Amino acid sequence: MNSSEIIEKINGFLVEEFEVEAEKITPDANLKSTLELDSLDYIDLVVVIESNFGFKVKPEDFVGIVTFGDFYNYVISKVEVKELA
């Protein structure tokens, strides 16, 4: 799976799960405020990531994630590591 396929898949489940307009999801947009995430929503986000991409997410992984671009890069790096294993 290449980077653009991963980003497309992420955007698809974000629109569906968090009922956000696709146009609002841009690499520079703030993840938390755009999706209006609270602590329970983060749990939902983790579950969706794990079920869609097959890797475990640790809470501390979200410390440096501010924008959708950060989020994309995080998921892409985890998928690449998983595919190499």
Score class of each variant (00 low, 15 high):
residue 76 I to G: 03
residue 47 V to I: 15
residue 4 S to R: 09
residue 76 I to Q: 04
residue 71 F to T: 00
residue 43 I to T: 11
residue 4 S to K: 11
residue 73 N to Y: 05
residue 3 S to D: 15
residue 61 D to I: 03
residue 38 D to W: 00
residue 2 N to W: 00
residue 80 E to Y: 01
residue 45 L to F: 13
residue 55 F to I: 05
residue 47 V to G: 07
residue 53 F to E: 10
residue 68 F to V: 10
residue 78 K to L: 07
residue 5 E to C: 02
residue 82 K to L: 14
residue 52 N to G: 10
residue 63 V to Q: 11
residue 3 S to W: 00
residue 52 N to H: 12
residue 37 L to E: 04
residue 10 I to A: 09
residue 67 T to M: 02
residue 22 A to G: 00
residue 5 E to M: 10
residue 67 T to S: 15
residue 58 K to L: 13
residue 39 S to F: 07
residue 36 E to D: 14
residue 80 E to C: 00
residue 48 V to R: 15
residue 62 F to S: 05
residue 36 E to A: 12
residue 61 D to P: 03
residue 27 P to Q: 06
residue 22 A to V: 09
residue 84 L to D: 08
residue 34 T to M: 08
residue 52 N to A: 08
residue 68 F to K: 09
residue 81 V to A: 15
residue 12 G to I: 00
residue 8 E to I: 00
residue 39 S to Y: 05
residue 1 M to A: 14
residue 19 E to R: 13
residue 49 I to G: 08
residue 15 V to H: 07
residue 79 V to H: 06
residue 2 N to G: 11
residue 11 N to I: 04
residue 64 G to S: 08
residue 1 M to I: 05
residue 81 V to D: 12
residue 9 K to I: 05
residue 29 A to K: 12
residue 64 G to P: 04
residue 78 K to C: 14
residue 17 E to S: 15
residue 30 N to P: 00
residue 1 M to R: 09
residue 45 L to P: 05
residue 74 Y to A: 04
residue 19 E to M: 10
residue 27 P to F: 04
residue 25 I to P: 10
residue 56 K to M: 08
residue 24 K to Q: 10
residue 34 T to C: 08
residue 25 I to W: 04
residue 33 S to W: 04
residue 60 E to G: 02
residue 75 V to R: 09
residue 21 E to D: 12
residue 43 I to Q: 08
residue 11 N to Y: 04
residue 59 P to H: 07
residue 77 S to V: 01
residue 70 D to P: 05
residue 53 F to K: 12
residue 34 T to S: 06
residue 40 L to T: 06
residue 55 F to A: 08
residue 84 L to Q: 14
residue 26 T to I: 07
residue 64 G to N: 10
residue 46 V to N: 02
residue 33 S to F: 08
residue 46 V to Q: 10
residue 58 K to A: 13
residue 84 L to R: 13
residue 56 K to D: 12
residue 26 T to N: 07
residue 33 S to M: 05
residue 43 I to N: 03
residue 80 E to P: 00
residue 57 V to P: 13
residue 15 V to S: 11
residue 69 G to D: 13
residue 51 S to D: 14
residue 57 V to R: 13
residue 51 S to G: 05
residue 85 A to L: 11
residue 1 M to G: 15
residue 62 F to E: 01
residue 31 L to W: 01
residue 79 V to M: 08
residue 29 A to I: 03
residue 40 L to V: 11
